[in-house]
Design a protein around this nucleic acid. Structure first.
Lengths: 257, 257
DNA sequence: CAGGCCCATAAGTATGACAATAACACGCGG
DNA sequence: CCGCGTGTTATTGTCATACTTATGGGCCTG
């Protein structure tokens, strides 16, 4: 049997690949991604009952073991809930764990729209602003040095991929410097947002945009280095808003290749 | 076989029960909770390899199916990763999905310490402040009415449990009114924080504390009703900080029963 | 000494049988 | 005729076993 049969249909493999995920390393992962995408895309509506496992078994051509492990994974992420005699129900959206990297990836597979990117930017602002403020109070010299290094690397980045990598690393260090384990936990979210932004529109090839982006990150690093929470908050807010504006603007008036 | 054999050791069953979770509805959930708690509590260190499944099978006295589904669930929550020939490795903490309700519950099972509650309060401040600000811009009349109703209910609550319920409902409505699906996704987190706070110290039986708590929530509702994001931010920050201070203060100088 | 082949080991997959659960329909009694 | 307990049955949950695949590390060869 051709294991990749069902996947060619998906359009978002690019993003999945860029973000380092491998949707088909084994059978169960393959089923997981197909079902996850089907649910997130609304193919199985919230509150509805999934087909019984006999039907799914036939559809995917896998063993019950594989199917059940895939469904258990979906249950662990809050997408479904199985009950004997009832069937397996798709949970309401507010039960879904949107901070899960896979769930986020499935959202992107159906094409990130502006309102989704906006929601992403809004949570990032909330969390990363606090992270920046806390980092300003708690960061040690090593971490400040690492932040400055990230900024330098961003400024000198040759390719959009490199730029995104250093950008992500910068935000990761800020989260770590905040000393709050929850802050670090949203790196999956940041990663997705940056991957999307970088796919849609990277500042690397536009010197003015690059300068602006680097500058605002440098201000974050400086504020943290000087232990100034208010300034760190403000600069972080600008950095995220700016990235969103650029991507959103680019989406509305489709770009050159 | 006695299914609940391994559970009696846990001390945090109270919180699990209060938060409406049932750690032992079926075998796989039982194994899941034991393993999850063992990992979170550091019994299996980050980066270490779990015992091979043959050993775990023997320890839990369950079938391979059950064990594997439990492990798959842990993997879905980012706690472990299985690789052929290597074994099943405990991932570093920053890969754990701390926004998952189960993972949070396991943290509480080992007794919430002040620094954990602080971290919780910090993320809540970040996210819920933004949620309140957005709600001020987007809430409709229905939602504002619901918020006011929650405040009234809080003021008239007879028992700590009732109070916590209305408190949670209030924050849930704010998240919903923000129009941002991610905001609603952290209700698990809020639920835990409130459950903890209510377990440690409820304002219900202290008239002055109750008045203060109700007042700050009323100010949030009013700010949202008047479409004033800045005031909503400020009041929400105070509400969360206040709840944390009360619980933390109570923890340091142990209370009467 | 370097590089590729082989093997032991642990996870992954398959299969078929049986147990537990709970909605629903049926029939009994009021 | 209506309400209530009970049995039926569909669906998930659990078990046992056998086989397949992936891979790190040692062995063998060049």
């Amino acid at each position: 049997m051709d294991r990749s049969a069902g996947r060619a249909r998906h359009s978002g493999d690019l993003i999945a690949a860029l973000s380092g995920r491998n949707p088909a390393r084994n059978l169960h992962t393959d089923v997981l991604w197909q079902m996850g995408f089907a649910i997130v895309s609304g193919q199985y509506a919230e509150g509805s009952i999934l087909p019984a496992d006999t039907e799914l078994l036939e559809r995917f051509g896998v063993s019950r073991t594989v199917l059940r492990e895939a469904l258990k994974t979906l249950a662990a992420k809050g997408l479904i809930e199985a009950r004997a005699r009832i069937g397996t129900r798709v949970l309401p959206r507010n039960r879904w764990n949107l901070f899960d990297a896979d769930v986020l990836a499935w959202f992107f597979e159906l094409g990130p729209d502006v309102s989704f990117l906006r929601s992403l930017a809004e949570v990032r602002i909330g969390i990363e602003i606090e992270a920046a403020a806390l980092a300003a109070e708690r960061a040690d010299k090593e971490q400040v040095k690492a932040l400055v290094a990230c900024v330098e690397n961003m400024a000198g980045a040759e390719t959009p991929a490199d730029f995104a990598r250093y950008d992500l690393e910068f935000h990761r260090v800020v989260a770590e410097a905040s000393g709050n384990p929850f802050m670090a936990s949203i790196s999956a979210l940041v990663e997705m947002a940056l991957t999307a932004a970088f796919t849609i529109s990277s500042p690397v090839n536009q010197p003015s945009a690059l300068a602006v982006t680097v500058d605002v990150h440098r201000r974050i690093a400086e504020a943290i280095g000087q232990g100034d929470p208010a300034a760190a908050r403000q600069a972080m807010r600008e950095a995220i808003a700016q990235g969103f504006d650029r991507a959103a603007g680019r989406m509305e008036q489709p770009a050159e290749a």
